[in-house]
């Protein structure tokens, strides 16, 4: 009789333990934010450095090296706060630049400086170098408030263009950005939580994506979004990216959002 009860108690305890293990493991797998945090810690422990920091270090070297036909560095590149001023530069991009007479995001601005200052031909500009430079410049805006407020007529036009693309339904999945990132913001596609721009969508890019083992800039991330809904992504540095970035970051500004650690670390 006593033995029986002991077995029963033991059995219950075992069951409870197994259930606990099952539940916590399930949660670990199911919460993408916690999983990203865990992966980030593992990188810190084993490598001592995050992949995003490596990209930024590579970008720092490229930034200060005398390169291109004109053999100059990018130190004179003006991101909107004055030549070579990188502190907080990302927070106010995209913006209008008088020298190129157009609205540019961080990626496009880097290409402009490589062409205008260093003398590269546009077709010579390597995507990997731009990405590393993006990581470096962005690292100087880590955790800062986003501050994109369209003011000039060109910036307002770019914002309106972005909003139009945001609602443009196309492709054989009948998609646009808004139908998920606005109408259903706060819910999940598969396991991925979906945010609206007001909720800070776009505040983690450029970021290292551990699931892809690659650095994604905001343009890369927008391209990935288009691809996943069956639309061929735009060419890099083209207007759709600048317009959508302008729209999302201006809305993120209205929602009083900050950038995450830069470069970000995400799935």
């Amino acid at each position: 009789m006593r033995k029986n009860r002991l077995y029963r108690v033991l059995g219950l305890a075992l069951l409870g333990f197994a259930l606990g293990v099952a539940l916590t493991q399930g949660q670990q797998e199911l919460d993408p934010y916690k999983e990203a945090e865990r992966q980030r810690e593992l990188f810190r422990q084993t490598a001592g450095i995050l992949p995003g920091e490596l990209y930024a270090a590579q970008g720092e070297e490229l930034f200060h090296a005398k390169r291109g036909p004109k053999q100059v560095s990018l130190e004179a590149c003006d991101f909107g706060l004055g030549p070579g001023k990188l502190e907080g530069a990302l927070t106010q991009l995209p913006r209008y630049f008088a020298d190129t007479k157009r609205v540019e995001d961080l990626e496009t601005r880097i290409v402009s400086c490589m062409v205008r200052l260093q003398g590269f031909k546009p077709e010579e500009v390597k995507r990997d170098e731009v990405k590393a430079l993006v990581a470096y410049v962005a690292s100087k805006s880590s955790e800062m408030p986003i501050n994109v407020v369209p003011r000039t007529s060109q910036e307002i036009a770019m914002y309106n263009l972005g909003r139009e693309l945001w609602y443009h339904r196309a492709g054989d999945r009948d998609m646009n950005c808004a139908i998920c990132h606005e109408a259903y913001a706060g819910r999940k596609v598969r396991l991925s939580p979906v945010r609206s721009p007001r909720q800070g969508l776009s505040n983690e890019w450029p970021a290292y994506r551990f699931e892809a083992d690659k650095l994604y800039t905001l343009q890369d991330r927008i391209a990935f979004c288009y691809e996943s809904v069956g639309i061929h992504p735009p060419d890099y540095y083209s207007e759709p990216y600048i317009a959508l970035s302008m729209y999302m970051l201006a809305e993120a500004t209205r929602g009083k959002n900050r950038f995450t650690e830069m470069p970000g670390f995400t799935r």
Binding site: L165, H168, R169, A170, A178, H232, P240
Partner: peptide, 30 residues
């Protein structure tokens, strides 16, 4: 808008073409 979409390259431009009801949904923000 068409000009901006065109600047994204021919393949992007092609896949951004809308049928009339997709255009209607876009116009009225769904």
């Amino acid at each position: 808008v068409s000009q901006a979409i065109q600047s994204g390259g021919p393949e992007f431009q092609k896949s951004m073409q809308q049928d009339p009801d997709q255009a209607l949904c876009s116009q009225y923000r769904d």
